[in-house]
């Protein structure tokens, strides 16, 4: 992952002049392409919202589709705009750790919600 990324060298950024960027460089063209992809995905989210009821989709399916699109957008932003794709291993580790932390928060909270009322609490005494 942390190897050099020579695919986007045809731009005017002066790639590789700073040592922080020794692990690769993201060209200007890529930024615009990622931006375009984000815009397309955003439009897709809105379109999905209006189209799904027409197709008779369950609301749960709608949520899953919206979440999938949102995760794709997040991945694009994290990898390209936040430079994780070309960062050092330790930076990638920290980015991964923050996702693990976030996953813990969401999963454990959802487990709690799921298991509420097991076993049924005894009501007020007669």
């Amino acid at each position: 992952m942390a190897t050099t990324n020579p695919t986007h060298s045809a731009d005017g950024h002066g790639a590789g002049t700073h040592d922080e960027h020794a692990h690769g460089h993201i060209g200007r063209g890529t930024y615009f392409r990622v931006f375009g992809a984000l815009m397309v995905l955003m439009i897709l989210t809105v379109v999905a919202f209006y189209v799904e009821p027409l197709l008779g989709f369950n609301r749960l399916v709608g949520v899953i589709i919206a979440m999938a699109i949102a995760c794709t957008k997040t991945a694009l932003i994290v990898l390209y705009f936040m430079h994780i794709k070309i960062s050092e291993r330790i930076t990638q580790l920290y980015a991964a750790a923050s996702f693990v932390g976030f996953a813990l928060l969401v999963i454990i909270v959802m487990i709690d919600y799921f298991a509420r009322g097991w076993p049924p609490a005894p009501g007020p005494l007669p």
């Binding site: 932390g101 813990l104 454990i108 487990i111 709690d112 919600y113 799921f114 298991a115 509420r116 009322g117 097991w118 076993p119």
Partner: peptide, 18 residues
Amino acid sequence: GFLVWGHHMFVSSQSVYA
């Protein structure tokens, strides 16, 4: 430390299994 926060919520209607 990231895995113990529910001990502040034993009486807050948190699931007993949690």
